[in-house]
């Protein structure tokens, strides 16, 4: 019986890992640019599909992770440069553009990839069955946790230890002053949006390996990432960490004890947060 709870907690952590990778990208872009990237789910899906094609062609999973992440970063770059930049500062058109992009990506995915569920094959060396203290758990899931911790640490490093990060944080606090100081805020916007795309693409490859990719999956993913950043506080990295940890456990235990309402359950913390602390656990008033 105890074994079961350990596995449930581990499952929760796995969920948290993917939720964090998803949510951190969204929250970064929001914190700086005040753009809710509603194509985040579509980015995730496209990244996963691209990764799937790479695995199918080469069998090389790390390469797939790289390609999935980088190509979405590139897409983010192009999108930001050619379209988002044109309506900069006007948050509603910005959001609408991302909606349009998500419609296009979701439909393009239907053209190029299978319409049934597909899943990325993880090579055996990345997915050994690991038994620790009598608990058997797939190694790939541990790997996912490690990857997401690495991502969290490097995001922290980028934000707090580099010049880019300083500019980003300053931009979050006060956009006008930053541009007045002569920092090229447009460049920073582009880099952050790319980073956000990179994270979505990585999440897509991870999610496509541990779960599956199927048409229509983008809206579920988008909703989950929105819940993560609403609970955690929009724009807060720490908030994304904490809220993905909480939501992961809720999803895991919800599935075990109230499976019929499992998807509904994750909205309860969101409702509580909205009612009691609308800016989110670690968000600032907007």
């Amino acid at each position: 019986m105890e074994l079961k709870y350990i596995i449930l907690i581990l499952n929760g952590l796995t969920q948290s890992a993917i939720l964090f990778v998803l949510g951190s990208g969204l929250t970064l872009a929001f914190g700086l640019m005040r753009v809710v990237n509603l194509s985040h789910g579509a980015f995730y899906m496209l990244g996963g599909y691209l990764g799937w094609s790479v695995v199918k062609a080469t069998g090389n999973w790390p390469l797939a992770l790289l390609v999935g992440g980088l190509s979405i970063a590139l897409l983010g770059f192009l999108f930001e440069k050619t379209m988002l930049g044109r309506v900069r500062g006007n948050d509603l058109p910005e959001t609408l553009l991302t909606v349009a992009l998500s419609m296009i990506i979701a439909d393009v995915c239907l053209v190029f990839w299978a319409r049934t569920a597909i899943t990325l094959n993880v090579p055996q060396y990345l997915n050994p069955t690991i038994t620790i203290l009598g608990v058997t758990y797939p190694g790939f899931r541990y790997l996912m946790m490690v990857i997401s911790i690495l991502i969290a640490v490097s995001l922290w490093f980028i934000l707090y230890k580099t010049n880019l990060g300083k500019a980003v944080r300053a931009g979050v606090d006060d956009r006008e002053t930053v541009s007045a100081l002569g920092i090229n805020i447009n460049k920073i916007y582009t880099s952050v949006f790319m980073l956000s795309g990179l994270l979505a693409g990585l999440a897509g490859v991870l999610g496509g390996s541990y779960l599956q990719l199927s048409p229509g999956g983008d809206t579920t993913i988008l909703t989950l990432s929105l819940v993560v950043i609403i609970v955690g506080g929009m724009g807060s990295l720490l908030g994304a960490v904490i809220s993905s940890l909480i939501l992961g456990q809720i999803m895991s235990f919800g599935l075990a004890f109230a499976p019929q309402y499992s998807y509904f359950l994750i909205f309860i913390p969101m409702a509580l947060v909205l009612a009691l602390r609308p800016q989110g656990l670690f968000g600032r008033q907007i």
């Binding site: 596995i7 449930l8 499952n11 895991s252 599935l255 075990a256 004890f257």
Partner: peptide
């Protein structure tokens, strides 16, 4: 429902 592992563990 994407991650069934909790249902499986139960």
């Amino acid at each position: 429902t994407s991650d069934f592992s909790s249902m499986i563990a139960s």
